[in-house]
Amino acid sequence: MSGPAPVTAEEFQRLSEFLYRRTGMIFTEAKRYYVQRRISERMAATGATSFASYFARLRSDLLGEVEQFINAFTVNETYFYREDHQLHCLTNDILPERTKRKSAGEALRIWSVPCSTGEEPYSIAMWLLDNWAEVDRFDIEIVGSDIDTRVLEAAEAGVFSKRALMRLTPDVIARYFTALDDERWAILDDLRQSVRFTPVNLVEPTETRPNGQFDVIFCRNVLIYFDDASRRIAAENLYENLSPGGFICLGHTESMSRISPLFDVRRYADAIVYQRPMEGARG
C-alpha cells in the first residue's frame, strides 16, 4: 500500500504559513522533504486519506491535532551540561551580581526555555548544588518550558538514556541518578521535584507572560529556527519575562545584538550574555 502523495508546492506553502503563524518557526523550500515526512506521519496517525482532509482537521484542531502537528516539528536533541561554559558564567558572575540586590531567603528564579526533555533545567539544578556556595541562602525556583508537550511529559518523568549523561562524571551520576538498567537512568526524586514544567509558545505573549519574571533565562538554540520578525517578537516577550537587571543566555551561534536593541551586552570570562537594563538605566 502506497503512502500519501507528496505535498505540492501550494500545499507546502499553506502548511509552512500555518506553522509560522502558530509558532514563529519558518520552513523554506529546502525543508520540503523534512515537512513531507512529518505530514505523512501525522496523516497516517489520523487516518487522513488526502492532504485536503488532513489540513481541514488541522485547521479545525480536531482532537487537538494542532498540538500533535507542532510536536512533530520540534527538534529535541540535547544532553546534560551542554554548553557548560554558561553554567560557569552563571555561578561565577551572573548570580553573584543578581544576589547583591537580594536578601537571604528571597526568590531567585531561573527559566529554561525551550527545555526539551529536561536535561537543561536539571543540569542547572545539579550545577548550583555542586558549584554555588550560596545555593541554600535563596529560595531558588527553576522552571522548564517548551512548546512540545511530549517532551514536557518526558522531562517530568526524569528518565534519561546513557547518551544524555555522556558529559557527566561518574561521581555526579552516582549522586543524582539511579540506574534502571544498562541504558536508562532516573534522576533522583528530590531533584525531579525541584523543577516545574510548563508549556509555552515564545511568540505568544499570552503564554509567556503568565510565567512571571525571572532573574536568569536560558533560551538556547531556538531563535535560529525563526525569521527576523518572529525573533523580534520572541525577544520582546523574553524581555518582559526578565526582571530589570536580569540576564538571558542564548546559544553560541545566536546574538541578541542582531535581533533586538532592548538588551545590553555583557562580556564575562566564560560567556557573552545579555541583560535587561535596570529601570532608569537608559536615558
Rank of each mutant, 00 (worst) to 15 (best):
N237R: 05
L58I: 09
T28D: 06
I39Q: 06
V222C: 07
I142T: 09
Q13F: 13
L168H: 01
R266C: 05
F138D: 05
Y176E: 09
P114Y: 00
Y20E: 01
A229I: 04
R14D: 12
M25I: 14
N76F: 03
T8S: 15
P210Q: 12
E65N: 08
R209H: 14
A45Y: 00
C115P: 00
Q68W: 02
Q68V: 00
I272T: 13
L58Q: 07
M1Q: 13
T206G: 12
I259V: 15
E240A: 11
Y34A: 04
R266N: 06
M1N: 11
R38F: 01
Y34C: 04
R266D: 03
S257P: 03
R57D: 11
E65D: 11
I142F: 06
A133I: 11
D228K: 13
D227I: 05
L165H: 01
L15M: 14
N237W: 01
N76R: 09
D130E: 15
V172F: 03
N221T: 01
K102G: 06
L95Y: 02
L62K: 08
E119G: 02
D215T: 10
R192P: 15
F27R: 04
L262E: 03
G283K: 01
L262C: 04
R266W: 00
H85T: 06
R282I: 06
F226E: 00
S16L: 08
I233M: 10
S103M: 06
S103E: 07
S60T: 14
H88M: 08
I217A: 09
R109F: 03
D270W: 00
Y20Q: 13
I272P: 02
D227M: 05
G280N: 08
T117S: 11
T49Q: 14
Y33F: 12
R196D: 13
D61Y: 08
G212H: 11
L19I: 15
A125R: 15
Y34S: 08
G280S: 12
E134F: 04
I124P: 09
L188W: 12
I187F: 12
F12Q: 14
E65S: 12
L62S: 14
Y33H: 10
